[in-house]
């Protein structure tokens, strides 16, 4: 399951997508909307994606993880649109025969997602807004 959605992410569905009888571990990462950035209160986030390329790059992440670790199944779902505090922005699930690989593969996927997948986050404050990471 590799997807973008403008609806709340169904975490159970993402986890169910990586169920495998050969799995001894399912590792799940949930990236959530924090209520502050560098101690400044955040009201909400807005996510925008270049959808066709983002899905392609998310699939590449799943493929890369499967080459490096003995991954059984991978699911990556990223949210777009307006997200209130506490909502899940991304849910990643990885199943592997043993737990260590599931942690490592999951961490690799979220770290690399943040570097290469064309999705952009805007932080909305009480008094303004900023595209994250845009300026040095």
């Amino acid at each position: 399951m590799i997807a973008l959605t403008d609806q709340p992410i169904n975490k159970e569905e993402v986890i169910a997508a990586v169920q495998s009888d050969g799995a001894g571990a399912v590792n799940v990462f949930i990236g959530t909307v924090r209520n502050n950035t560098q101690k400044k209160p955040v009201v909400r986030l807005e996510f925008e994606a270049y959808e066709s390329m983002a899905v392609k790059k998310m699939q590449e992440l799943a493929d890369m993880a499967s080459e490096r670790w003995p991954v059984l199944k991978v699911a990556i779902v990223h949210r777009t649109g307006v997200l209130p505090i506490g909502e899940a922005a991304v849910v990643i699930a990885v199943s592997t025969p043993h737990r260590k690989a599931s942690f490592e593969a999951c961490e690799f996927i979220i770290d690399t997602l943040k570097e290469i997948v064309p999705i952009w986050k805007k932080e909305i404050f009480e008094d303004g807004e900023v595209w994250v990471a845009a300026h040095p």
Binding site: S52, M53, A89, I116, I119, K121
Partner: peptide, 26 residues
């Protein structure tokens, strides 16, 4: 066409081209 392109790639009018500012998903 949905792939990061190096500076020396030649462009064609029917390419799908996009500017990619620093990404910040996750």
């Amino acid at each position: 066409n949905d792939e990061y392109a190096k500076p020396d790639v030649t462009l064609n009018p029917n390419d799908e081209i996009a500017l990619i500012p620093p990404v910040s998903g996750g």
